[in-house]
Design a protein around this nucleic acid. Structure first.
Length: 526
RNA sequence: GCGGGCGUGAUCUAGCUGGUUAGGAUAUGAGCCUUCCAAGCUCAAUGCCCGGGUUCGAAUCCCGGCGCCCGCACCA
């Protein structure tokens, strides 16, 4: 049994993960988070919120999973998200259509069968199934289409960021590897809008000396200070570098092993249809090697531009600078006389035209004509600079991070010949913060322990009371789900109102005053 | 999607040359015991992935489906 199998067995046994629809035989690509797993996942997501909402001052929104056809047509997903697959009838191999040689199998020359795969789940809106729609492949589009409102909300100040945590859906060809490749998965995405020429981050200073393990496209792995990486153009801009550092900090905070994180830049031909540049945070997992868990992409103006083109809605932001511009003012009295009914068309083309040698060339009904200065005058105007903001997008696969947290904190040891499992996750991520036990279930000890458990819960601390079995067994159960502390009420408690607190990772115990418990725990689970 | 292997209580597994009370271990629940690390004793619940076929009779043989694992392909 490798670690993966051990972890999935533990997850199953302790209510962390279940295979979905198991009683119907299961469905590939879907997993349930059980009672303990759900809390842990929420804790990870809340830690993420702590970074992006509290620290970065962004806001979270929540938009629908079902997305109308037009939106994803505009974003490019309808066309780009299709994989055209050809399968050879002779040797059975599958290829991308571009790989075929003269329409035949590139390996054996056999005839091929064409198939198409769009990775989006299709659905319909309304009873008549008239309007085609998709389950969103990413949460990002919901943010982009709200840009005009959000820009207003942030009082037209750029940069600003908006985040969303939610489900994304991709109809994977063959999902395997448990929770690492799901058809329905949780993602946490931040869309940060920048001026195209100013992708700096005001807090870059904080991370500029941090060294990250980098794997730039076409280069060897290196470890480099972020400031230097930006200066040397290895990382395209400060904002990308900043969010790489933030990602690194977040991952280690939730319990990922720092030595198992690296940042790999996408090769040009590997980039998504919407991305200019992209760095993945990859996490090392024993069975699967380096796995992409976070993508930090520079999406440039791709999405806002696409939605503006499709809807005509203005996606411009106005800059602080004023720009001087030469503006062509058509002379309508002349144009009207000359072009009659076509005058409006001429005016429109002329306004968009460029002056060359005192003339402007325009196209009228497919015909090129030149207009000289009797039809227009040139005026110098001062306008507010306007631009379509660029987007930097850190996008986190929560389920993959969740699994990595389990794996990196799974500790197995021998205890009197038996395998003993401890999940050494950070206390902030643990589902249950404290187990509360009477040393033995008699002589009034259970009553005291129950009071302590209730008091912890009153203070919003997830505590768990247990009096069954031997004390060792109760500790062991808590260790397996990563409960960092166990509080035990013993006979001395009746004398002096103290309890023992036992540490998960060392099994050491200390004794503290009963009335100090809540504060003591609170301080250690942040 | 292609090829190969596999599928027995919650978990690991015995049984698999067809014969019926499907066995064990661990875990779980109840009780007893227990003054700090999965101790012990008693009892209990949970199973042959699903469907079809062959047969007097299928966990066992055959076919299909689903799932899992490995390789190929795919993975914005």
């Amino acid at each position: 049994m490798d670690v993966y199998e051990k972890i999935m067995a533990l997850a199953r046994r302790r209510g962390i993960l279940y295979k979905s629809y198991a009683i119907y035989g299961g469905e590939a690509g879907f997993y349930d988070y059980g009672p303990i797993g759900s809390i842990m996942k929420n804790n990870i997501e809340n830690e993420w919120r702590n970074f992006y909402i509290i620290k970065e001052r962004f806001y979270e929104i929540s938009t629908p999973s079902i997305t109308p056809y037009d939106v994803l047509k505009a974003s490019g997903h309808v066309d780009e998200f299709i994989d055209k697959i050809a399968t050879c009838k002779k040797c059975g191999r599958s290829f991308k259509v571009e790989e075929l040689k003269d329409g035949k199998c590139p390996i054996c020359g056999g005839d091929v069968e064409h198939g198409e795969m769009n990775l989006m789940f299709e659905t319909y809106i309304g009873a008549k199934k008239k309007d085609k729609a998709f389950l969103r492949p990413e949460t990002a589009q919901g943010i982009f289409v709200d840009f005009p409102f959000l820009y207003e909300f942030f009082r037209k100040k750029i940069p600003f960021g908006v985040v969303q945590i939610g489900k994304g859906f991709r109809n994977e060809v063959s999902p395997r590897q448990g929770v690492l490749r799901l058809r329905e998965f949780s993602m946490a995405e931040a869309e940060i809008f920048f001026h195209p020429e100013n992708k700096r981050h005001e807090n870059f200073e904080e991370y500029k000396d941090r060294k990250l393990r980098l794997l730039p496209a076409g280069m060897d792995e290196m470890e480099m200070r972020l400031e230097e990486a930006v200066k040397r153009g290895i990382i395209g801009n400060e904002a990308l570098a900043y969010y790489m550092a933030l990602t690194h900090e977040f991952l280690t905070k939730v319990g990922i092993d720092e030595n198992k994180i690296r940042f790999r830049q996408h090769e040009k031909d590997e980039l998504a249809h919407y991305a200019n540049d992209c760095w993945d945070a990859e996490i090392f997992m024993q069975r699967f090697g380096w796995v992409e868990c976070v993508g930090i992409a520079d999406r440039a103006a791709h999405d806002l531009m696409a939605h503006m083109k499709a809807t005509g809605v203005n996606m411009y932001a106005s800059g602080e600078k004023k720009v001087k511009r030469k503006k062509i003012k058509p002379k309508m009295d002349k144009i009207g006389k000359e072009f009659k009914a076509k005058a409006m068309k001429v005016k429109e083309s002329l306004e968009k035209g460029v002056v060359k040698n005192g003339k402007v060339e325009i196209e009228l009904d497919g015909e090129k004509i030149e207009l000289d200065e009797q039809f227009f005058e040139v005026e110098e105007v001062e306008e507010q600079e306007k631009y379509i903001p660029h987007v930097i997008e850190p996008s986190y696969g929560i389920d993959r991070i969740f699994y990595a947290v389990l794996e990196h904190n799974y500790k197995e040891m021998k205890k009197e010949g038996e395998n003993y499992v401890v999940l050494s996750i950070p206390p902030s991520i643990a589902a249950i913060k404290a187990g509360v036990f009477p040393l033995v279930a008699k002589d009034g000890l259970p009553e005291i322990a129950k009071e302590i458990e209730a008091e912890l819960r009153k203070n919003r601390i997830m505590a768990f009371y247990d009096e069954k079995g031997s004390i060792g067994r109760r500790y062991a159960r808590m260790d397996e789900i990563g409960t960092p502390f166990c509080i035990t009420v013993d006979y001395q408690t009746k004398d002096d109102d103290t309890v023992t607190i036992r540490f998960r990772d060392t099994t050491e115990q200390i004794r503290i005053e009963r009335n100090a418990i809540v504060k003591w725990i609170e301080e250690r689970i942040k």
